[in-house]
């Protein structure tokens, strides 16, 4: 295994190039898209750091909600959706709301960590 430079280091270098070198040399739509590209890579960086623990936590929350500790996360997510849709899980169920808030907040930590909706 060779990890020098690491994926994180390479991403950081590309983000730096896009924002500090490429974007200032571009204009109009191209400059805008260079900055969006840097934002996309910063999202990938956050996803690499947070996806696994976020998914593990989501699986534990949904497992408790559904009393199902064996199914994988995607099956649990599908079942949560089905039960909300059928009314088996009520939209004002406090355990459901707490679980969805935690899962959604973790997703936003990856997607848009400074979003104002996350503030208490």
């Amino acid at each position: 295994m060779h990890e020098a430079p690491s994926s994180e280091e390479l991403l950081g270098a590309v983000i730096g190039f896009l924002t500090e070198v490429a974007a200032p040399h571009l204009s109009g739509q191209a400059a805008f898209h260079a900055r969006v590209a840097a934002n996309a890579l910063a999202l990938v960086e956050r996803e690499m750091a947070h996806r696994q623990p976020a998914d593990a936590r989501a699986r534990a929350l949904y497992a408790a909600l559904l009393s199902d500790t064996s199914s994988p996360l995607d099956a649990l997510t599908k079942e949560v959706c089905a039960r909300i849709r059928s009314g088996a899980l009520a939209y004002d169920d406090p355990a459901l709301l707490a679980a969805l808030r935690e899962v959604t907040s973790a997703q936003l930590t990856i997607d848009q960590p400074t979003y104002s909706g996350l503030k208490p």
Binding site: L43, L97, L100, R101, T104, S105, Q107, L108, D111, Q112, Y115, G117, L118
Partner: peptide, 12 residues
């Protein structure tokens, strides 16, 4: 990836 901002707003 902005769909999740709508989700937290809906929960709020």
């Amino acid at each position: 990836r902005r769909a999740s901002e709508a989700e937290i707003d809906l929960l709020n």
